[in-house]
Computed example of a mutant assay.
Amino acid sequence: MNAKVLVEFLKSSDNPEIVALASAIDTARAVAIEGARTTESPESSNYWRKHKFVALIKTDWDFYVKHQDSDEVGADVSLEWVGDSREDVIAQALQYLTNLENFTGSERNIQSFIENYLVDVFEQFRLGDIDEWCSGGNWDIDYSYEKPDSSEPESENYYPHVNFFGQRIDLLSEAELVELGFVSSKD
């Protein structure tokens, strides 16, 4: 079932709750389209081909880390950098995590985090000595480098979709799948 067709049908209803459902589906569709246009986004047709570096940071409220997509900060954050090479994603992560503007809270704790949980660890990642690193205790820190997938995901599971009462609703039309690079044109 295609979301574009479903939304057009639901919006013609006289019932405001059904029209609201159509708007919610249309919003999910717009988010999927915007994500598909950003190659670093999981919704992109190229995301599976990218290198990734993930940092999970729990600071026990000793300091706070800024989320990448907003100005909000948290004591329990998940961050991801996506790029074309191992070096690229590690450099992006290091640049973000050493920028003091991406933290709030105790300056002493932030400096301790940078000195003890970044500099030497990231050098090991850069050299290719490790692909994963974690530390527990007062602060739980997990870093992982992920190579691109070696094969393209199965398209039926890969295309942006939502499930509604057990029914799969594809968020993109066939033309949009071609335009956004999920499938090749049949011409």
Rank of each mutant, 00 (worst) to 15 (best):
D120A: 11
A22Y: 05
K58M: 11
A32S: 03
L6T: 14
E174A: 14
F182E: 00
R29Q: 08
D131S: 11
D76T: 10
Y158E: 05
N2Q: 13
F125Q: 02
S151K: 15
K58Y: 11
I114A: 02
K58H: 14
V54H: 08
N2Y: 10
N163I: 15
K147M: 10
G137N: 02
E115R: 15
S150N: 11
G35S: 05
L171G: 04
D187W: 06
Y47S: 03
Q124P: 02
S41G: 07
Y64M: 09
G181C: 03
N157S: 14
S150H: 07
P42Y: 09
E174F: 11
R108F: 07
L56V: 15
Y117I: 05
P153Y: 03
N116Y: 08
E179M: 00
P42I: 14
V121R: 11
S41N: 15
P42C: 06
G181K: 10
F63S: 04
N157G: 15
S106W: 00
V31D: 12
I18Q: 11
P16C: 07
S155T: 15
D142P: 00
L94K: 14
R49G: 04
R86N: 08
Y158I: 06
G128L: 02
G83Y: 01
I130F: 03
Q95R: 13
A93E: 01
V5Q: 12
V31R: 14
T27F: 13
F182H: 06
R126V: 07
D88N: 09
E101K: 12
K66N: 00
F63P: 07
D60I: 06
V162M: 09
N2G: 09
R29W: 02
M1F: 04
L172T: 05
D71E: 08
L100P: 00
G166W: 02
N2P: 01
D26E: 14
F165I: 15
W81Y: 11
D69H: 14
A36N: 08
V54G: 02
G35C: 04
K147S: 12
A3F: 00
P16N: 10
T98N: 06
L97R: 00
E101N: 14
N163C: 10
F9W: 10
Y96R: 03
N163G: 12
E34N: 13
L180F: 06
W139S: 10
N138F: 05
T59G: 06
H67Q: 09
Y47A: 04
E101G: 05
T27I: 14
L10D: 03
S70C: 02
I33N: 01
E43L: 12
